[in-house]
Nucleic acid binder design. Structure first.
Lengths: 232, 232
DNA sequence: GGAACGCTTCGGCCGGGGCCGAAGCGTTCC
DNA sequence: GGAACGCTTCGGCCCCGGCCGAAGCGTTCC
């Protein structure tokens, strides 16, 4: 018998992520937005021509997807599964011996609040999750959860409208392991809706060239009033 | 501002998995057992000296752990998180353009029944999950679930004893995305207990040098009687 | 004690793949 | 139409890292 053939395919995908430039590119796309080739070249720390090669490879393997728009080419992660795989790897990273742990202001900003694909993560994500569960708005059983009627009414008051029962399509309430806090935070449709609403309310703002989020003054106020959250 | 530093750590871990020999070694360890360096060299398709180098790297990054025993050295996956990350990558692999999809007898055996770290996967894993949920023994809400009282009594009849309430420690009932079936199957403590019990009952047997499982004649009978499962 | 065994370390070979700049192609702007 | 822009393709350089066999070290067996 010959060794597992499936290891070859596994190695191929992992090797694609296992290059510093490509890993940086994928990290930059982890917030779910689509970026242009030049922006990604910058994130990868390589020239435009080199980045172009990387993007072609990632596209061919269906890790990222391309959308043409005029003379720009926008790339985004191909699916939530890709984001999930990268997030899982990040978790393993945090178990690895601490060598490349900058813990500078950049890293601290990420740990405080960031987007994870399309939902909130970091201490902010955890705080919101905790607030909703401790009040009985969300029931977290193991690695997933459900929204209570009371929770649904509460969310309405801050302008988040979700039906508690959603047949088919995307899961309403999933959880995602937070690599910096090592605890689960809210993901799924609910996580996405909350994150979107926070932006609409002007509570959070993206920090330029980063997945990190800034919490605005209104955000501080709103989070305290609606959720009882005061983030140090 | 400089590009994300965390991409470096991500790339390092992914690159470790992104080598064919190492990916094969990790795949071989995915069933949760510990194997010797020579066995792993064979799985990786490389010489003992080369394998030794790979194992040292994987150890240093905390992807695998070492247990000395006499003149043997047993290696196993370092944690469930590592298994989870690899499984997530496997899922992405199944989305990738089909090039390395052998679909030979080996692959078919894996798709039929296999272990995934410490629980059942493949069509068998899905069938058991479906049987338990359709009878109301397990409630699967989104990506996790809970065991009902009735489910607990049923499991007792086949000799699986679990407390429905388990505070602290490992989650009783988690789910894990099956890369071959693309649907969630039972994982967590419950998944592990079921898998163990199937071995004890002699319903399943490991196929030599593989994560694939054989379903014995008693297994066919038991699965049909207890779960109503008939696997083609 | 000696032989067999399991595994690691070392030295040297070699190839794949990442990098860049120059050039080419398509789009947009005025 | 021409210039600026965004991106890709091509050619050539170079280095990282995987591979092996030989040798070394520790354990086990008799």
């Amino acid at each position: 018998m010959t060794p597992m053939v499936s290891g070859i395919a596994l190695a191929e995908i992992a090797a694609l992520i296992g290059d510093v430039a490509r890993a940086n590119i994928l990290s930059a796309l982890m917030d779910g937005r689509a970026l242009t080739a030049s922006e990604l070249a910058w994130h990868g720390g390589v020239s435009a021509s080199t980045a172009s090669g990387h993007l072609a490879k990632l596209c061919e393997a269906n890790l990222i997807a391309l959308e043409r728009q005029g003379r720009h080419r926008y790339y985004r992660l191909a699916s939530a599964e890709v984001a999930q795989a990268i997030e899982a790897l990040m978790t393993v990273v945090s178990f690895a011996p601490k060598r490349h742990r900058p813990v500078g202001p950049r890293d601290e900003a990420l740990r405080r609040a960031r987007t994870c694909y399309d939902h909130l993560a970091g201490r902010l994500g955890i705080a919101v999750t905790d607030a909703l569960t401790s009040r009985g708005h969300v029931l977290l059983s193991e690695s997933a959860g459900s929204l209570t009627g009371e929770g649904q009414r509460f969310l309405c008051t801050i302008g988040v409208e979700v039906e508690a029962e959603r047949k088919g399509q995307r899961a309403l309430c999933r959880t995602c392991l937070d690599w910096s806090e090592r605890r689960p935070h809210l993901a799924g449709h609910l996580g996405s809706a909350l994150c979107t609403r926070f932006f609409e309310l002007g509570w959070t703002e993206r920090i330029r060239d980063s997945r990190a989020l800034a919490i605005t003054t209104e955000g501080q106020k709103g989070l305290k009033e609606a959720f009882g959250i005061e983030l140090p």
